[in-house]
Computed example of a mutant assay.
Amino acid sequence: MRQTFAPALLLMLSACGSGGDKSEAPADPAAQTAAEPAPAANTGPSLASAPAAFGQCATCHAIKSGVNAVGPSLFAVYGRKSATGPDYAYSEAMKASGLTWDEATLDTYLTAPMKHVPGTKMTFAGMADAAKRKEIIEFLKTLK
């Protein structure tokens, strides 16, 4: 009896999922769209738009809001007063520096951080290439 039942069951099951009659009306496109996953929310800036020279910065700094690494997040750093990013333990030297991160200050600082703010935690020796510093500063301006 099992042998006669199995082929009949397979025949019935194969008809169930076959797509049925091809004359059926197509599914509602609005319903298909609603079933598709929503695109990912904008999660902030991406390193894909950063200049190549920023790779050195990205070693220690994140660019997303609220994400600190070895160094503080650089999100919205341009125009901000030094040592004011949230949830980062800044050096006493940086806290006392009174700097505001504008073009001139960033350019000077990125040239030789430890000379500009003696006692800073930033151990980066500096970037001699003015064009690369400018690219980095222009990128920092976009992190909002």
Rank of each mutant, 00 (worst) to 15 (best):
S49L: 15
P45G: 12
E92A: 07
T43I: 14
D129A: 11
A35D: 03
Q3D: 14
I136L: 00
H116P: 09
W101Y: 10
T142N: 06
A50H: 11
L74Y: 11
Q56W: 13
V70R: 15
G119K: 00
P113K: 04
L143Q: 11
K132T: 06
M114G: 00
A58V: 10
A38K: 10
T108F: 03
K95T: 15
R80G: 01
A48H: 11
S91D: 00
F54D: 01
M114I: 01
C60A: 05
T84V: 04
L106S: 00
A31G: 12
P72K: 11
G44P: 08
T120K: 00
A6C: 14
L13C: 08
A130I: 07
E24K: 09
A40F: 03
A128T: 09
V70H: 13
A50E: 01
A96H: 02
A76R: 12
S14D: 10
D129T: 10
W101V: 03
Q32N: 14
S46D: 06
T142E: 13
A125T: 12
R2S: 09
E103R: 12
Y109M: 00
S18D: 12
C16W: 14
W101I: 03
T123D: 13
S49Q: 15
A30Q: 07
P39R: 05
P37T: 12
G79I: 01
Y88T: 01
S49R: 15
A40I: 09
T111K: 10
Y90G: 06
K95G: 14
A41G: 15
P26H: 13
Y109V: 00
A93C: 13
R133S: 01
T123C: 09
M114L: 00
K121M: 07
G19R: 05
I63F: 01
K144R: 06
C60W: 07
A131D: 09
K132S: 15
S46E: 07
R80S: 06
A93Y: 11
S82N: 03
K144C: 00
A52V: 15
A76E: 14
M1D: 03
L74N: 07
G19D: 03
G20A: 05
A35M: 02
A25K: 15
G71L: 10
S73D: 13
P113N: 08
